[in-house]
Design a protein around this nucleic acid. Structure first.
Length: 677
RNA sequence: CGCAGGAUGGAGCAGUAGGUAGCUCGUUGGGCUCAUAACCCAAAGGUCGCAGGUUCGAGUCCUGCUCCUGCUACCA
């Protein structure tokens, strides 16, 4: 922090190009990075802001297969959506590129080759599961099998979600491929590993030299270091990605997390011929904005790569944010629980700054935060409209009415005027310091304090009263009010660039930068102001409710779409079937089982006697619904004690897509006890 | 299991080297009327997750515990 740098390279996480972007991405890294960069630019610093899409890796090939298109078509589609929405949202990248570009392939291959030639890799041949039908090696996550610990039949190769234990694919009983359902075979494969274990001391030293990093970042890193780093494969068996630049390596590509961070470098290459200045000069400060899931890659693996390579500078800071939730639930692309940026831009035209404000104000800087539409509305209505918009509007309207839309001259100052101007002069530095220290929420609150200062100044000086008998004094008051607005147009720019631009247009200002903020003479008396209308509009309850409804609909749709018809079980013999005694019975009585959420106690007449069957259907049916119904049940199932009672059989139910249950009735009433063959 | 982060008035968050608990929004009351029923002032509201300990004194240090999140596909 104390070191003086000549220039700054700012990167924002490379987003994976298999879906559009949502508010979590923005709040997590793109908006903070943009605020930071805009501030540095306003300070006159030399800064390059680089980001793009990460277009390699297994999930993209899966997505392509699912949609029946090529991986390239997948990434082309999302690259465009993502790039366009960022641009419209005012994220001011100097370049937004992609890792499928030629220059990126060359750059990462060159770096790989350099590490290889320097002997930095360890070659190792391991046995891995291979899917013969899909002709591909399987990532741990794409192997499904029975958990050795809890016998869950759908455990993943890396973890069983039922019992939570961490697994390795070879531990699974009856492994099968998630792609084809086939049983995978073990096949030897050679890969190149980066020996992180040997590099740990150097990495520890690097981390130790940055005690100023955010606690969540250091904590995460420490967690990895405590565990002890292990060698990590930098190549994968896959045909989608950057080819390994060595002989006889067909079907092998660079590990996405090897090539992705190099993307920052290759994108800078595309941007400028002077790219080396931004990546190799120790007087350049490198700042990587990311979300917390990326911490290990940016704080350990990428630095390790750079150290091994020897040519590149290491990050001076990695200000990672935590995660943002949505209406109390985790944002999820696959569950469609998200506010998509491209949709927001369509539905809230011209309101980029409202979302920028709401996200910056509740960004997950120190811990996970929650975005709610209610909060969005409040922030807009009571802060942007009520405080900022209102102040500007008051100052403008008063000037229009009383001074013919010309900036009035400033006469003699009162103590209160001076006090106000002093406060005004201090705020820009405070805001700048907060931004420089990655405290964007605090910085934004201080920006609002500028508007609050203006509101209070007008309320205390009451120009609408003074005008009745002292025009000159009124002029002084409004001059000061407008000067406050002028500073506001500068300090709000990193956060709300669209609003800031409108405001400077209205005031007839241009070309100002951060050092001008706080100055009380930005506006010259006599120059005109231009009507800019209202900076912000109120957002109505109905608008907000529509968004919430949309989310809920999406959730429902997704639940329905998420179900797939399960595969047919293994073949059985007739004898196996004949063992089951399936019968029709009539439910004669039903009651809820006390203290149980799911169980219903059913009294079923099977033609011979009444039997008690406990069935887990209470969440779907009430006792009145089922009395008198004929149902299919398994009559010779071994009795099973539950909740202090014994269940003598099992009612057969069909589960519908949405999780609701249906009974199996005979198509006409039959006698109780009818057997089923 | 372990490691890491978090748990502070109704909501969202600050609390820097331990010394009477702050901010924004919301609520209530009052004032003002230039302004998008916006603005200004004031008040109410917290035993700082739980239980111990160190200290003259702890939200802040130590120990144990509980809950949430991450480390684990999609994903910032």
């Amino acid at each position: 922090m104390t070191k003086q740098f000549k220039r700054t390279t700012v990167t924002a996480a490379l987003i994976y190009a298999n879906g559009p972007i949502h508010i979590g991405h923005i709040a997590g890294c793109y908006l903070p990075a943009d605020i930071y960069v805009r501030y540095l630019r306003s300070m006159g610093h030399d800064v390059k802001f680089v980001s793009g899409t990460d277009e390699h890796g297994v999930p993209i090939t899966i997505k392509a297969k699912k949609e029946g298109i090529t991986p390239q078509e997948v990434v082309d589609k999302y690259y465009k959506i993502i790039k366009d929405s960022f641009e419209e949202f005012g994220i001011s990248f100097d370049i937004y590129s992609r890792t499928s570009n030629k220059v990126h392939h060359e750059t990462s291959q060159e770096m790989f080759k350099n590490l290889y030639d320097k002997g930095q890799f360890v070659e190792e041949v391991t046995e891995q599961y291979f899917d013969e039908k899909a002709q591909t090696f399987l990532a741990d996550r794409y192997i499904i099998g029975t958990c050795p610990k809890c016998s869950n039949e759908n455990a993943y190769g890396d973890q069983c979600e039922k019992c939570g234990s961490t697994l390795s694919p070879t531990e699974l009983i009856n492994p099968r491929s998630a792609l084809s359902g086939e049983k995978p075979v073990m096949k030897p494969t050679k890969n190149w590993y980066l020996p992180l274990d040997k590099m740990q001391p150097a990495l520890e030293e690097y981390i130790a030299s940055h005690p100023e990093w955010k606690t969540n970042v250091l904590g995460q890193v420490k967690s990895w270091l405590n565990d002890g780093l292990r060698p990590r494969a930098m190549t994968r068996d896959l045909d989608w990605g950057v080819k390994v630049p060595l002989p006889d390596t067909d079907g092998k590509v660079l590990y996405v997390w090897f090539d992705a961070p190099i993307g920052y470098i290759s994108m800078t290459k595309e941007l400028t011929d002077e790219w080396q200045k931004y990546w190799q000069d120790p007087e350049t400060r490198l700042v990587n904005f990311i979300g917390k899931d990326n911490i290990v890659f940016h704080c350990l693996i990428f630095p390790a790569m750079c150290m091994a390579d020897g040519r590149f500078i290491l990050a001076d800071n990695v200000p990672a944010n935590e995660f943002m939730n949505l209406e109390g639930d985790k944002i999820s692309t696959s569950r469609n629980w998200a506010v998509w940026l491209h949709e927001y831009l369509r539905e809230f035209e011209g309101k980029q700054d409202v979302l920028r404000y709401a996200l910056a104000a509740s960004a997950p800087e120190t811990k996970d935060s929650d975005f709610t539409w209610g909060d969005f509305q409040t922030r807009n209505n009571s802060e942007l409209v009520g405080i900022l918009g209102n102040f500007v509007n008051r100052a403008f309207v008063l000037t229009q009415k009383n001074f013919d839309s010309k900036i009035p001259a400033r006469g003699e100052l009162t103590d209160f005027d001076r006090q106000t101007l002093d406060t005004l002069a201090e705020l820009p530095n405070k805001i700048g310091d907060a931004i420089a220290n990655y405290k964007f929420r605090e910085a934004l609150a201080l920006v609002m304090d500028v508007a609050r200062l203006g509101n209070k100044y007008l309320a205390d000086t009451e120009p609408w009263k003074v005008i009745k008998n002292d025009v000159e004094r009124t002029g002084t008051i409004l001059n000061i009010g407008l000067q406050i607005a002028a500073t506001l147009s500068i300090v709000s720019e990193p956060f709300m660039p669209f609003t800031a631009a409108k405001l400077s247009t209205g005031l007839g200002l241009s070309g100002l930068n951060w050092s001008d903020a706080g100055n009380a003479d930005l506006l010259t008396a006599g120059s005109p102001i231009e009507s800019i209308g209202l900076l912000f509009d109120k957002i109505e309850d109905t608008t907000v409710q529509a968004q919430i409804q949309k989310l809920q609909d999406a959730k429902k749709m997704n639940e329905l779409a998420g179900k797939e018809v399960s595969a047919i079980k293994d073949t059985i013999q007739y004898d196996d079937f004949a063992k089951m005694d399936l019968r029709i019975g009539t439910i004669e009585a039903a009651e809820k089982v006390a203290k149980s959420k799911k169980l219903l106690k059913l009294t079923v007449n099977d033609g011979l006697k009444q039997r008690t069957i406990l069935s887990g259907i209470a969440e779907h049916f009430s006792p009145e619904d089922v009395i008198g119904k004929q149902v299919t049940f398994l009559a010779n199932l071994a009795p099973r004690p539950m909740m202090g009672m014994v269940s003598e059989g099992m009612i057969l139910m069909a589960e519908d897509k949405d999780g609701s249950l249906a009974f199996l009735h005979p198509s006409k009433d039959v006698w109780s006890g009818a057997s089923i063959n």
